[in-house]
Design a protein around this nucleic acid. Structure first.
Lengths: 131, 131
DNA sequence: CTTGACCTTCCAGTCGCTGGAAGCCCCACC
DNA sequence: GGTGGGGCTTCCAGCGACTGGAAGGTCAAG
């Protein structure tokens, strides 16, 4: 398969696949004409990566996941630990964003949104050192 | 005030303040020795920026907010519109992360996390085209 | 006079791509 | 055989918002 084929089948842009080769996540062979030649295992890896990335794992985590994936002797506890760490990170982010959302929503609700300059949002931003 | 002073008072790292000057958000004058010289208005601006950034506004939004801030004739509706757009973005992000969190949590819960290789998380990542 | 804390500039790196330029390669069609 | 259009290659630059570090000037205290 050429890069266009695996791109379509994995759902990853060709650019991204080349990038993944650059950083050593896949190692397709080369045809005589210099084109990358992907086997079904490469495709499988790329689909794996696409899914892992869509779940928000970082590239480095994906690298680890791939190596665990290829390790028949792996312990599921290793995978679970990684996923839990990631989950914690996501939940932490959610909490932060929810706090942000609440603050902003409060400001937005209190703002009249008319053609006068008076504005609680601006007042909040401009308050000096009142945190 | 030198950069160290405004850094401490605004809570922004000196590096960040220099960066903000680079991109034209503040324009401190210079002392004879070449040091940046910040007035109280500069400090005020930087505090404004620090607050706006902490609320998650992008730099470009901050630029707009600053200009609205300095416009005595502004309409609060302009400010409100900007804040609402931002709020929508945040809430959208929260929804995405919550979906991610739910998916991951489900996988993590179903994973035994023992020393055997069998692992629902891996199975999910490796499933080909079964979305 | 030296030390150490400041300050300056400039360059490079972060993360995960993405866009674009310049230039092969290949196949179909005429 | 030529031509056109796609697909492929490499390499370089840019995104956002900083951050780290090197190399060097400045200033006040001891």
């Amino acid at each position: 398969m050429n890069i266009g084929d695996v791109s379509e089948r994995s759902g990853l842009p060709a650019k991204t696949i080349r990038y993944y080769e650059d950083i050593g996540l896949v190692r397709p062979s080369r045809s005589e004409n210099g084109y990358r030649e992907f086997g079904s295992q490469d495709l499988h890896k790329l689909a794996f990566l696409a899914r892992a990335r869509s779940l928000g794992f970082t590239i480095e985590e994906c690298r680890t996941l791939l190596s665990l994936y290829e390790d028949r002797q792996r312990s599921s506890s290793d995978v679970k630990r990684l996923a839990e760490k990631h989950l914690t990170r996501i939940d932490q982010k959610i909490v932060e964003l929810q706090a942000l959302s609440a603050t902003l929503r409060d400001l937005v609700v209190r703002c009249q949104g008319d053609d006068r300059p008076e504005c609680p949002i601006m007042n909040d931003l401009a308050r000096s050192g009142t945190t």
